[in-house]
């Protein structure tokens, strides 16, 4: 197909080829987001002694599609005193980075849209932009609940970005590269070579920060169902609301994907006798996503100031200490442990 394209439309071929690749990433991503919501409802349902959705299609498998259809046909209500431009910009600003970050995610050797060398930095930049969507949504709605939610969210995401960034510093020290493919290949050689072992504290902090970063329970103060009702997206309805929802779940998959790539060896097989491949990556991501759901079913919600304390007074010192520790160890004969 590539040959046909390049032979018959040489001028536009490159662009069309890239667009096709983007579609090949975004469509499965959208489907996995939809079925992540289904998976969440089923998993939490069984944890709570319920069944979860089971009416639309077999085992409720068509439920996400029914939900999407319903949301599409709903009216998008624009609050009278809101800023129209910002009000509609916010959901776009939330979902765009959540999808854009996927450009540098490698699914297998060479199976990546843009194999840039500063891939890790690019992802950090993209996930940071997402917070603007939340802030603008809260601000433009001109509602006190939404405003409180966006303030909480802004403070939270900015603080946890630092802890998350520091834990990634540990990874790039080990891998000597910012390129995600290189980072994965640095972990080749079986289960024992994965970065999760030398960087275990950083992995834990990365994962907890990732939960906070995506505004998931127990860090869901920005939404705070029982406190500020729905937080920053309280005034959104219909598809505008669905876009926030999509972004949240796309971000969940993204951060799980990153954790799998950087700490759990990406597409590499844990044992020698089974070949490497993209399915390994999806299994690891699914496993990590399960934790998101498990947390949600188990933990009470933190208070806003407690989240700040945890981020600044616990996570950042630990990550700093571990980075220094790795740095020192790399100068000693034990450096092999840290590659």
């Amino acid at each position: 197909m590539e040959d046909i394209l390049f032979n018959y439309f040489p001028s536009a071929a490159n662009i069309i080829w890239i667009i096709l690749k983007i579609i090949a990433i975004v469509i499965p991503l959208m489907i996995s987001v939809a079925y992540l919501t289904y998976f969440e409802r089923k998993v939490i349902g069984y944890m709570q002694g319920r069944i979860g959705p089971n009416r639309v299609g077999y085992f409720g498998l068509l439920q996400p599609i029914a939900d999407a259809l319903k949301l599409m046909f709903k009216e998008i209500i624009l609050p009278t005193k809101s800023n129209k431009f910002l009000f509609f910009l916010a959901p776009i600003l939330t979902i765009a980075p959540a999808f854009a970050a996927w450009a540098v995610i490698p699914f297998d050797i060479g199976l990546v849209l843009a194999d840039v060398n500063a891939g890790l930095l690019y992802i950090l930049a993209m996930t940071s932009i997402a917070v603007y969507g939340v802030i603008i949504a809260g601000w433009a709605s001109n509602s006190k609940y939404a405003f409180l939610g966006s303030l909480r969210s802004a403070a939270q995401i900015v603080s946890y970005e630092i802890a998350m960034g520091f834990s990634l510093v540990g990874v790039l020290m080990c891998a000597n590269s910012l390129n995600l493919s290189q980072i994965v290949l640095g972990q080749s050689g079986g289960l024992s070579q994965w970065y999760i072992w030398p960087l275990f504290p950083l992995f834990i902090i990365y994962f907890i920060s990732a939960v906070a970063e995506t505004n998931r329970a127990p860090f869901d103060v920005a939404e705070g169902e029982s406190e500020i009702v729905a937080g920053f997206h309280v005034e959104y309805s219909g598809m505008a609301f669905a876009v926030f929802f999509l972004a949240e779940y796309a971000n969940m998959i993204l951060v799980s994907m990153l954790a799998a790539l950087m700490f759990l060896g990406g597409w590499l097989s844990p044992v020698e006798f089974i070949p490497d491949g993209a399915p390994w990556l999806f299994v690891k991501v699914g496993f990590l996503l399960f934790f998101f759901l498990w947390f949600r079913a188990t933990f009470p919600r933190y208070r806003y100031d407690q989240i700040m304390r945890l981020g600044w007074k616990v996570f950042i010192p630990i990550t700093l200490f571990w980075i220094v520790f790795i740095g020192i160890m790399m100068q000693t004969p034990y450096q092999g442990m840290f590659h």
Binding site: I44, M47, Q48, A217, P218, D220, E225, S226, R296, A297, T298, F299, P300, R301, Y302
Partner: peptide, 8 residues
């Protein structure tokens, strides 16, 4: 518990 965020 639900108010404090623990659903289950």
């Amino acid at each position: 518990a639900l108010d404090v965020g623990a659903m289950t």
